[in-house]
Amino acid sequence: MIRWGGVAPLGLFNPDLSKWSHLRIQLISQDGYQVAILPPDGSQLQTNPSWLANKSYRWTFEAKAEQPGDAIHTEAWGGVGYADFPLTSKWKGYSTAGTINPLHGNLYFWNASANKNIYIRNIKIYEV
Rank of each mutant, 00 (worst) to 15 (best):
W59H: 06
Y126H: 08
D70W: 04
I72Y: 03
S56C: 10
S21M: 13
Y108S: 12
S29E: 14
N14H: 11
S21K: 03
N14F: 00
P9T: 05
D16T: 10
Q67F: 03
Y57H: 01
I125W: 05
P102N: 15
S56G: 15
V35T: 05
W20C: 09
A83R: 07
H22N: 14
N101S: 10
N48M: 13
K116E: 11
W59F: 00
W59Y: 02
P40H: 09
S56M: 01
Y33P: 01
F13V: 11
P39N: 08
S18F: 05
L10V: 02
A71T: 14
G42A: 15
L10I: 04
N54P: 00
W51L: 04
L17F: 07
L12Q: 07
H22E: 06
I25G: 00
P39M: 02
W91V: 07
S56P: 02
F61C: 09
N106L: 07
N48R: 15
P15V: 12
K64A: 01
N48G: 13
I123C: 04
L45V: 09
A8F: 12
I100D: 03
Q44H: 08
S21G: 12
G93M: 11
R24C: 14
N54Y: 02
G42H: 02
G93V: 13
T47P: 09
L87D: 03
Q44F: 03
G32N: 14
K92R: 14
L107S: 06
D16Y: 06
N122F: 00
N115I: 15
I100S: 02
S29A: 15
R58T: 09
L17Q: 06
N115K: 13
S21Q: 14
A76I: 10
R58W: 00
E66T: 13
E66R: 03
P15Q: 13
F85S: 11
T88Q: 09
G79M: 11
G81M: 06
L45F: 06
G81V: 00
G105T: 06
A83L: 12
L10E: 10
N48D: 08
L12W: 05
W91E: 07
N115H: 10
L45W: 02
W51N: 03
E127K: 02
I125G: 06
T60G: 14
P86G: 08
E62V: 09
W110H: 12
R121T: 02
H73G: 12
Y126N: 00
W20S: 03
L103D: 08
P102S: 11
G79F: 11
W59D: 01
P86Y: 11
Q67K: 10
I125C: 05
R58H: 02
G11N: 15
K64Q: 07
N111Y: 11
N101A: 11
A97Q: 08
Q67V: 11
Y108D: 09
S113W: 10
S29Q: 11
N115C: 07
W59A: 01
P15S: 13
D84M: 08
P39V: 09
G11T: 14
G78V: 08
Y82S: 14
G69W: 04
N115W: 06
W59S: 08
I125T: 05
N54C: 07
G93C: 07
I118K: 06
H22V: 12
P9R: 14
A114E: 08
L52N: 09
A97F: 06
V80P: 04
H73R: 06
I123D: 00
G78Q: 10
N106T: 10
W91I: 03
R121H: 14
S113P: 05
E66F: 00
T88M: 04
